[in-house]
Design a protein around this nucleic acid. Sequence first.
RNA 1: GUGGUUGUAGCUCAGCUGGUUAGAGCGCUGGAUUGUGGUUCCAGAGGUCGCCGGUUCGAACCCGGUCUUCCACCCCA
Length: 462
Amino acid sequence: MAKKPSIPKGTRDFSPAEVARRNYIIQTIKKHFETYGFQPIETPSFENSETLMGKYGDEGDRLIFKILNSGDFISKVDDVTYSSKNSASLTPKISEKALRYDLTVPFARYVVMHQNEIDFPFKRYQIQPVWRADRPQKGRFREFYQCDADVVGANSLLQEVEFVQLYDAVFTDLGLNGATIKINNRKILSGIAEVIGAKHLLVDFTVALDKLDKIGEEKVKAEMMEKGISEAAISKAQPLFEMTGTASEQLEKLKSILADSEVGMLGVSELEEIISTVDMVGLQSTNLQLDVTLARGLNYYTGAIFEVAAPEGVKMGSIGGGGRYDDLTGIFGLKDVSGVGISFGLDRIYLVLEELNLFPDSLDTSLDVLCLNFGKKEGTAALKLVSGLRKQGLRADLYPTDTKVQKQFKYADKRGVPYVILLGEQELTDGKFVAKNMKTGDQKDYPLDSLEEFVEKVKSDF
RNA sequence: GUGGUUGUAGCUCAGCUGGUUAGAGCGCUGGAUUGUGGUUCCAGAGGUCGCCGGUUCGAACCCGGUCUUCCACCCCA
């Protein structure tokens, strides 16, 4: 007996109902990407290892899925490396390719390779799966989709404002009210690190600060000290732990802390401009919130950083994130191209919409009309009828065999078909068909030679 | 990568300190009902108790390993 089949940890199969719901989210996001002028591209699911390695920090490198070389790759490894049993030195010799870890780095690679064909500023969007060798949890998978939109070759802060609006447009359209778009600026974090004299420990400082609302002030300070940040430096940063009030009040506080830091003041003025412009254009259903503790791990951000939190009460990590990176293409040899972008976490948005019951009911309908089968002669006539309905744009199907009517009805019920058509011997001689509304139970006759009235009736129910 | 947690019918779960033939609800199949589903009634099918090994006269239950689930770290969508 064959062993029960299984799929790898952190991966999933999607049923027809799940795919319908995922497509609904994707279509919504895509629609808004396109109305904002973004163009789609796609890149390969795997890249050369050197394209990906070292771009996400040590922790990121660990989470990249490596692909073994083809052929007899082990025989080509020298004995010293092989017997050392050291993964770090052995891996590059047996693996030269890796699954993409996100869409931003492959995009940077794309921009550099195609720089002569691209018209800048270039606005691209990309909706594809990415893979991470992470340990799965709820809302955390080893294969998941990112929906990214980025602009390269434009320095204007209006881009940042547009991305906030784009987040707002998508979440409003999905009916997800009350999501919070958190914003910060990497320059402010650099400025703070500079002012407190911990410039070289910027990453450690920001990673610790990021946990403030999760583990509290004391533990954050303890972690900073553990990373080698002095007590004096931490006490200089004390005002950061007391950031309350409106965005403009917080910005005023930051100005006084960062007065001596050129980069810090630049960050403050950038944020000020973005926030006041967003204020002017207004948001529909999301809130923009300044959060100086927002850090985000990825090393390549240099300006604004975004993160989207699900509405209050939903326990879920961030459902989107992004920011500005001034030199991402620099690592591939193209200098002075500034980029800014955001990402939607499809799989997490799915879980949030499901938890809040926000998927439209219409997604459950995969077939508008099922025509029952009463035998050979009737079936042939029914097929003609079904073809006519399909030409009018209805999703219509004929039950393939003339089994018991009861059984055919049960099937229609389970598929959630709103209309069932009965076309038997009597109807055929009368030149009509009977349509039953499965929700109300009403039945009505329609002429076989003119389908418009019935088609209109079905379409009006959408 | 570290620590913990979970796994019994298609699904949700019972199953006593280890003791004959492992249960329920829902779902499924058939019938009541040869042109009417979603309600009702009757009958039936469906399990190597995640997998491998150990302890024991005897293991769903105890022990070890492994895979999986979820959780806390790490990190992140």
